[in-house]
Design a protein around this nucleic acid. Structure first.
Lengths: 237, 237
DNA sequence: TTTTGAATGTCGTTG
DNA sequence: CAACGACGTTCAAAA
């Protein structure tokens, strides 16, 4: 019995299915009229409405409305779910610790509830990440500039790891901060922290900082200019 | 007819329901054996497996496995969905522009498909955000320090808006950067950009920078120290 | 439409 | 476990 579905079940019947599905680590979906309360890093209440609620075998809880990518409420993986029937309501409480958080979904009416056995160990193959951009540059460092010589990736400094560290034609140290998309001021600041750290470490004030991204905002360009950093437009097409 | 559900439908029957549900702007959930391809800002492929797929009236598409908060694949709101049957597969293609992106979900077998009419206009009441923390400080500015006088929130500078701008006992300008949780180096850099901008604008080198957060990392403390900024521990309990 | 920064961010990697 | 930064980040507000 891989799939179990109930249509407009009594709270008692829904409760039974919830209990067994939590036990068997099945994926649960519910749709119905519910209100939601959350207490943890923040607090929230959501008045009664029709929503899709999902409970995953790993402890994740998701409350989705008819809009947006993000769930309106949720509980992260590692939470434990517990169902109960009281005051004519079906309550599912998801709790976790560190930080202590609690999500309560109170169903007034359950339209449907379904439990599925999930067997899926295939993982996503994704290309186009910053990691791919880095490899692409390492394969052809001349896209940065003629004579650029990559020495290390993830080069550690007191400020954190430098995406690509190398030297230029003149042998001066070069710090490269990579971004896969158009960037704002924070990327320039990040580069600034790394350049400052490596300048101090090497006692070499000739250290150059280069921000590599498909494009940058005006304010970011101003920051780079102020700090005498450079921008190199690179887009992995 | 608010809810429609099919169990192990033929691709043709699933297709019919998809078409009508997209038309009526109903919320769709599907569970079954599918593979997924995405092309857009990045590219990805996901080998066949059992997944929960959701299509929302606003154009959102979500592909969930049995693990994690985040969908393994998705399409943002504003996308348009289109179903077709070909080569013994049921394909649902979600497309959008700016940026151009495409998500294909190919079902080999559909275990269940359900369509729901969602009517939910109640919105989330959330407390504990940075906005709340700011109001809490404005109500009792002495938690920053005796004599602190808030002048403006979201005070504009060439570097962006300052969370709280004010003056201290001595009449010196004070720039406050607020964070609702433990912060890392980026928050210190953010404060640095604002202080630099306001110092230049006012030609007042006595400008103070204060990072307000429940706690900070060691590296962040070092950065604050280097720039002669201060840290004020504030936790809205 | 673009920019900017918050987020109950989540997630992976590393020390 | 904390820390740090990427993310197809998403999202909302403001310019």
């Amino acid at each position: 019995m891989t799939t179990t579905r109930l249509y407009r079940p009594t709270h008692r019947d829904a409760f039974e299915l919830l209990e067994s599905a939590f036990e068997d680590e099945r994926l649960l979906t519910m749709f119905g009229l519910c209100e939601v309360q959350y207490e943890g890093r923040a607090s929230s209440t959501l008045a009664p409405g029709q929503r899709l609620v999902i409970y995953k075998p790993d402890g994740t809880a998701l409350v989705h409305t008819g809009e947006n990518h993000e769930p309106v409420n949720w509980q992260p993986p590692g939470s434990t779910h517990n169902a109960s029937v009281r005051d004519g309501q079906l309550r599912i409480r998801s709790t976790r610790s560190n930080p202590t958080e609690q999500l309560d979904v109170m169903f007034e009416r359950v339209e449907t509830i379904s439990a599925y056995a999930v067997t899926d160990r295939s993982d996503l193959k994704l290309t186009g990440s910053e990691e791919d951009l880095r490899q692409w540059i390492l394969d052809q460092p001349e896209v940065i500039e003629e004579g650029f010589d990559p020495i290390a990736t993830e080069r550690q400094t007191t400020a954190g790891p430098i995406d690509i560290f190398g030297t230029d034609n003149a042998g001066h140290p070069v710090v490269i901060e990579l971004k896969r998309r158009r960037v704002g001021p924070s990327a320039a600041s990040q580069l600034q922290r790394y350049v400052e750290a490596i300048t101090a470490e090497l006692s070499d004030t000739s250290t150059r900082g280069i921000l590599v991204a498909p494009s940058i905002t005006d304010r970011t360009a101003s920051l780079l200019n102020k700090w005498d950093f450079e921008y190199c437009s690179v887009d992995i097409e």
